[in-house]
Design a protein around this nucleic acid. Structure first.
Lengths: 246, 246
DNA sequence: GACCGGGGTTGATCTACGTCAAGGCGCAAA
DNA sequence: TTTGCGCCTTGACGTAGATCAACCCCGGTC
């Protein structure tokens, strides 16, 4: 085997996963489950997939079979509109579950695209349903995860329906900050994985507007921006923007 | 009992309900279940509540205990913002299930307000979970109902994020029309239960804009409007508006 | 039958954000 | 090092929809 590389390429690897030893278990599906209950989860969440930047976990129209727990990396949910525009409907980070849009019609309704090289745990849905018929607390937890998605979406609807551009951006940054904190990262300093255009698409704004408002926030000393690197300098200032509809 | 009225007032009545004989069962939770499975549902969906116009099934902050299937009438989901404005996040008609926002935190995240005198079937959530641990197809159906809510919300997000005022209104009317059809009503002629302001709040527009666009559609022969009575005269014309982002 | 008030319409004007356009920065390939 | 290409920034200008304001319509009440 002289000409063989030491490791074969990993793009399609099926790696062994266990929830019970996962550092994200307090955020993810295992949240609130006992040790033995988590072991039941281990039985069904048996593989993970690596997704390269730009690739999709699933695409709109794909048959639905599994949910995916993000183990590492960063994703956007998006739909390609008839006119070719890419409409972003969400951003997702480790510990979050994607794919629930597929349950209702047995086909996915959107794409889940990696914004950086990432890894997801595959949760075969039929087996999750089976397990949650047996383990009450798992059933409960899964229902909470779905409900949280509903509440989150309604929050975005309100953002889009009522807020002005600056408020949207402020809310967006604060939301990201919170989610980073929950994952043990700095609340004040982080790296945006998405472009201005993707942020704009998600927030119902144009990329120029996003850029301008970042600059404005910077001029006002609220944040520091250089390219995709963000520092939040004055959280309360950002919070104060919300709800001030002029 | 001479001075007694023949019937006591019904506002707080607990009436017996059965899914198995309900005309909405093909739209509602029983969808796709067998006769015997629906009988299992009958055991838990035992009461219904009358809700007068303007009253709430639940309010934001209320402890969560049940879901509610709309049996008759019309509802909006809404949140009262700090500044007192009433932000509408959805409209609901018979056969739809409301209250799923409460699962994630055990408290409701919004109000469900009746837009006309209505009736809902109370579905105690603990018992629904119990039954769906026993009846596989009920579990599946319930998951589909939740997923449909997620997909629906994402559709609204896209509407708010990408469409212009006329497109939003056109999409709104077509959506109502479809939902009326599914319930056996005319797709072309219906009564709006909500005010222009509520429509605007839902669509991220001001009531004047809604009013103006209704008038415009009328001038163009797309619809007939008189107050809350709507006739759709030219469905294809409305459909053609979607996706034309000039 | 007169009154009243909530909802709806319509016009005139204002403005937040979109659009168009010209550069600039940073990274990767040549 | 140069070239090219995303991605971002910034300015000048245009416009969809908000705002402000007057008025109307209709259903309920006294």
């Amino acid at each position: 085997m002289p000409a063989q590389p030491a490791l074969k390429p990993l793009n399609t690897d099926q790696l062994k996963t266990v929830c019970s030893s996962c550092s994200l278990r307090e955020l993810c599906l295992p949240m609130g489950l006992s040790e033995t209950e988590i072991e039941r989860l281990d039985q069904l969440v048996s593989t993970r997939r690596r997704i390269k930047r730009g690739e999709n976990v699933y695409r709109a129209g794909d048959p639905f079979a599994s949910l995916y727990a993000i183990r590492s990396g960063f994703f956007k949910s998006n739909v390609i509109l008839e006119d070719g525009r890419d409409q972003v409907t969400g951003f997702h980070m480790p510990g979050e579950i994607v794919g629930m849009d597929g349950i209702s019609t047995d086909r996915h309704a959107c794409n889940a695209t990696a914004l950086e090289d990432s890894e997801v745990c595959v949760i075969p849905f039929a087996r999750l349903e089976e397990a949650s018929r047996q383990v009450r607390s798992l059933q409960r937890q899964f229902h909470k995860v779905m409900s949280r998605e509903i509440v989150r979406d309604q929050g975005v609807m309100m953002l889009l329906g009522t807020m002005r551009a600056e408020e949207r951006l402020a809310a967006f940054l604060l939301n990201l900050s919170q989610r980073f904190v929950a994952r043990g990262y700095s609340p004040a300093e982080f790296h945006l994985r998405m472009t201005r255009e993707e942020i704009g698409s998600y927030l119902g704004l144009k990329l120029e507007t996003v850029s301008r408002i970042f600059s404005k926030f910077q001029d006002e000393g609220l944040i520091g921006v250089q390219q995709k690197h963000i520092r939040i300098l004055h959280v309360d200032g950002l919070k104060a923007m919300l709800g001030h509809h002029t």
